[in-house]
């Protein structure tokens, strides 16, 4: 269906659907639901083990957590700039911003990897205690989402370099970008909850 055959809305108002494919938004909502349950489970588990959670939280690397927040926020900003550039038919600029977003994601994985290595070296694992069971499973669940987000960004980068997207065809890049922003959004809640709040 081309644009001309779409009936004009009865009254000018906001767009009815979010950017990108509608399906990605159902996927994002499902992901948010899963993370939401995880966050609530963490918070209520803490309510019954306050001393343990507050003591164990002090053993986390808060600097690494903060650095990773900066990396994800910056990665998200880079991808938003990429979408903006592609929307102005600047594919080459868009591809560069996507590459910067991928670099931020890679930086996140390296920092988190170093954090995990330090914990495993200290003999910490899923059965160490309730706090670490939550810390490891929650952050690793998120870690896997960062990896998937990066796979999507690489696919977008390849296609953007080929000029596959443009002002008339934003669906693919907007859908992939929305997923990446979701990964950032989840970390924005996770960092204060797990690393800071006590």
């Amino acid at each position: 269906m081309d644009a001309a055959s779409v009936p004009a809305p009865a009254s000018p108002g906001p767009a009815t659907a979010p950017p990108g494919d509608l399906a990605i938004w159902f996927f994002i909502l499902a992901e948010l639901l899963a993370f939401g349950v995880f966050f609530a489970a963490y918070a209520f588990a803490r309510a019954h083990n306050v001393a343990l959670f507050d003591t164990m939280q002090q053993t986390l690397d808060r600097q690494a957590g903060a650095l990773n927040t900066v990396l994800l926020i910056s990665g998200s900003a880079c991808v938003a700039r990429a979408v903006e550039a592609v929307g102005r038919a600047r594919s080459a600029t868009g591809a560069r911003w996507l590459l910067a977003g991928i670099a931020c994601g890679a930086g996140f994985l390296v920092v988190k990897g170093v954090e995990y290595a330090a914990k495993f070296e200290a003999g910490i694992n899923l059965s160490t205690n309730t706090f670490y069971m939550f810390y490891l499973s929650l952050t690793f669940f998120h870690f896997m989402h960062v990896i998937l987000g990066m796979v999507i960004l690489v696919a977008l980068w390849v296609k953007t370099r080929q000029g596959a997207y443009g002002p008339a065809d934003m669906n693919g890049i907007e859908s992939g970008a929305a997923y990446w922003h979701m990964v950032d959004l989840v970390w924005i809640v996770l960092f204060p909850l797990v690393y800071v709040m006590r």
């Binding site: 906001p14 767009a15 979010p18 922003h181 959004l185």
Partner: peptide, 17 residues
């Protein structure tokens, strides 16, 4: 922070409530 990411990065600011 989350609200800004949702509205301005995800682009939901101008979208149906």
């Amino acid at each position: 922070k989350g609200r800004l990411v949702v509205l301005d990065f995800m682009g939901l600011r101008g979208v149906k409530f």
